[in-house]
Amino acid sequence: MATLNDALATLDTLPALPTTSIQLVGMLASGGREADLREIEAIIRHDESIAATVLKLANSAAFSSPGRTFSLGESVRRLGSRTLCRIALETQVSGTLANAGRSYGLRRGSLSQCAAGGALAADTLARRHRIDPELCFVAALLRDIGKLAIDALAGPEALEQIAAQADARPFLAYEREAFGADHAELGGILCERWGLPSEICGAVRGHHEPPSHPASAVTDIVHAADCVARWAGLGLGCDGLLYVFDSAARERLHTTRDELEALVADVLSASTPQATRDLHSLRSTA
């Protein structure tokens, strides 16, 4: 059994989020005040996977400027800074999470899909409930980043053995018993160490157990989005559905069954790779 200190020591051994990702989070969280197209273009130029996605989107029907473009600069102009930030950040976080979740029995890429699906759900819910969509999008994208730490702490099949004996308690309780901290808390600490805005750190930390005193609308949205992603079958490992949908958060959001079920259908298409995604969801953010 590991202690909290072991868990915290593990955080030091994890690969850091790319510096450019942290810059992108800052640009999104500032509502565009700190966004600089030239900086974004420079980030994109250094990442082939982002550049390819940007070119493809800029030439899609969703961004209906006439004629094809093979220029990154023209693509940047067509898509706009917010969409570019999102594409770049999502691609980078997807890369960071691609190999995460193995201790939960997840296949390669599953956690990236879950992050993208949850981010779309959070963005949609935030717009409906008039809460900052950029903060909700980023926090939902990063919400399971703490699973990187659990991967480093857990021995082979440790979580499967825990799940095999689990009763009807939340999976976070088993993580705390085994590792001294759960993945949500470790994710929140990682975000703090990376200097991300406090609303994002709080939402990552509370995405399974949203606090009531004081409540955070961003955390409530990310919590609901996480449940939506689980209902869509995204990121389901040996922890399954051993998580609670907090009734107080649901009441604060005034969210309904129909609203969330419609989102369950939507997030499935969002969980496919960015380059092949249905572009309608991006169009609304352009």
Binding site: D6, T10, R102
Partner: peptide, 14 residues
């Protein structure tokens, strides 16, 4: 504390 840096991934899902 146990670590599993070499714990293999399951095959990429088709």
């Amino acid at each position: 504390m146990s670590r599993s840096p070499s714990l293999p991934f399951k095959n990429d899902p088709p």
